[in-house]
Design a binder for these strands. Sequence first.
DNA 1: TATTATAGAGAACAATCGTTCTCTATTCAA
DNA 2: TTGAATAGAGAACGATTGTTCTCTATAATA
Lengths: 208, 208
Amino acid sequence: MQQLDVSSYLGKLQDYYAKERIIPSTTQLSVLWNGKARSWTHRIVQRLKEEGFLENGPGGRLRPGPRFFERTVGHRIRAGLPQEAFDVQPELLRIDDYLIEKPSQTILFPVKGDSMIDLGILEGDMVVIERSDSASPGQVVLAIVDNEFTLKVLARDKEGYYLEARNDRRSGDYLPIRPEQKLEIYGFYVGLFRKAPASRNRIGSSRG
Amino acid sequence: MQQLDVSSYLGKLQDYYAKERIIPSTTQLSVLWNGKARSWTHRIVQRLKEEGFLENGPGGRLRPGPRFFERTVGHRIRAGLPQEAFDVQPELLRIDDYLIEKPSQTILFPVKGDSMIDLGILEGDMVVIERSDSASPGQVVLAIVDNEFTLKVLARDKEGYYLEARNDRRSGDYLPIRPEQKLEIYGFYVGLFRKAPASRNRIGSSRG
DNA sequence: TATTATAGAGAACAATCGTTCTCTATTCAA
DNA sequence: TTGAATAGAGAACGATTGTTCTCTATAATA
């Protein structure tokens, strides 16, 4: 009548995955889980699948399921915290996987200037751009204007497509850009990442 | 005498992996690469291994190699010609390595609220936190207040340490937090990443 | 023209795969 | 004490695996 404690098996598997980046086969899992029989291993795998930690990819191979990357902060470090503040282990999740859907059509771009600051896009950020010739109004796009790349919001009115900045405080400096002929779009914005410069963090604690 | 263009094969494989989170078997790769013979597929895989895009994990299975997650970084100025990428080698970057220095001491944390919006940290962003019990004034820290995690700027005055928000427009809503006893710091902010929700992108092109 | 590398087909190998079956212990609750 | 669930062993299945052969056809080079 007791519950099968699947978590110790899962823990070992997660550690293995963090190191090898592969879900092992049943045979190898048996070894990893202290040499149990393959049939038994298979049964545990079934449980992990039912609970969403594993799933079958194409070809019957195992792969991480949606819950595989979960881990609770409280459990690991602060048992006292009642809050279910679960986070994600960076060893398990690749940020890359999270941000990029079509690697072959994705390019990273460093952001210049503060024209998109209202969308939380700062100078020095790296934006993730998915290549595309076209986009919809309202989308953030990387366009080519005067032989330079520029990140702006695509907009449209009766006169056609144009580009808008997103910086209310300096809206006078960033007037809408209307192309002379064709508006050339290079791709659209799908995400960004930012490394906080140690220096920027330390800039005084006084607020304007 | 011509070079085998392995990059188109690699691109398809990278796209597949981004979707399925598995490197397929030789047989499946043959299908993915437009139905080539298994022996030929195997030869291409060998090349990808030589170049560091793939490698053999335990059990002979394929897994992503060290170069598999490299992404190209564009530069601001567009090279004069419509065709980019001639003999100039593009700069490559691995997002995970860029953001995370100490994986075992790093956690990812989802941002709640807009209290740090002036630093470009928005609701729904994932912040990269490096564990530490202490921090310097001016640093952005993840602290524990009232049994909840909160991301704020660490500050200090004659009365001691306290936490500040960074939201000028709603500064009245985010008053400095002064702990009753000890200020408990969980770690400090080293970066963030953000996936642009498709819906957020489409929110109208009109500006307040 | 002869040569060489690319691009591909097809067969064959032992090894491993996931899965299913039947058979024991052990443990715990009714 | 009985029954049922857990925990595990072991054998066996056909399918798929990675790999290695040998054999063509094409295309570019020397």
